[in-house]
Design a protein around this nucleic acid. Sequence first.
DNA 1: GTATACCTTCAAGTCAACTTGAAGGTCAAG
DNA 2: CTTGACCTTCAAGTTGACTTGAAGGTATAC
Lengths: 132, 132
Amino acid sequence: MRIGELASESGVQSSAIRYYEAIGVLAPPARTPSGYRDYDSSASTRVQFVKAAQQAGLTLTEITSIFNLRDEGSQPCRHVADLIDRKLGQINDRITALSQTRQELKRLAKRAERLDPEHCPPNSICQIIEPN
Amino acid sequence: MRIGELASESGVQSSAIRYYEAIGVLAPPARTPSGYRDYDSSASTRVQFVKAAQQAGLTLTEITSIFNLRDEGSQPCRHVADLIDRKLGQINDRITALSQTRQELKRLAKRAERLDPEHCPPNSICQIIEPN
DNA sequence: GTATACCTTCAAGTCAACTTGAAGGTCAAG
DNA sequence: CTTGACCTTCAAGTTGACTTGAAGGTATAC
């Protein structure tokens, strides 16, 4: 299977697959006599795994670490479970931060409704957003 | 006021202030005879505004557009209100996406608890995270 | 034989908001 | 007169996951 076929089959771009190879996510595949990358069917499994793991919020570095464990022969279960727990913590933090920003924006939106544009004090930049 | 004083007064780094100037967020200030940047007190107001608006999730580009309106003499109120509404939409989208990721991670965490590492099928990469 | 669709490598660009580093000038204190 | 804190400019690095471009080779259909 050539790179374009793998790409369209797994829903990523060829350039992304080359990139995965370059940074060590995917192992270099066999080559045809003319130098084209020649993938076997397991490549598709790996690319799909990359996508699924990215969906779950794992970085390419973390995904690589799973592949490395796997290729060593270890079972990456515990490792993956740890990654997932850490990710959950990070996601929760991000959501908390975004929720605070949302609160702040809602406050500003209400302020904007309440404030009369005509009464904009001339020496402030914008009465809606002001420090304090 | 020199750059270091402005920086510590407003809680940002000198390099950030130079950066704001470079990308057009802040106007170039006066200079002392020896070439040091020499800020007046309105600079502090602007930097504080930048911080407040960033807190609210606005980008430097958006903040610049507020300053530009202001410096033209227009009142940026409506513009700011629009920015805030758009931001609220974006933040809500981000939170929704993150919440879905969190759901997915929770599902995986439960799977990880339930699955026995000893029963890891040899031809899959990791039974916890799998496509589908 | 030629069009075109695909492949190759390597370098550099993208986005955002800065920081870091190098090489050097200025200023006040002791 | 030297030390040290502060300032200057300009270029490049950071983070993550890629994409884009240039310059060229290969495969297939007509």
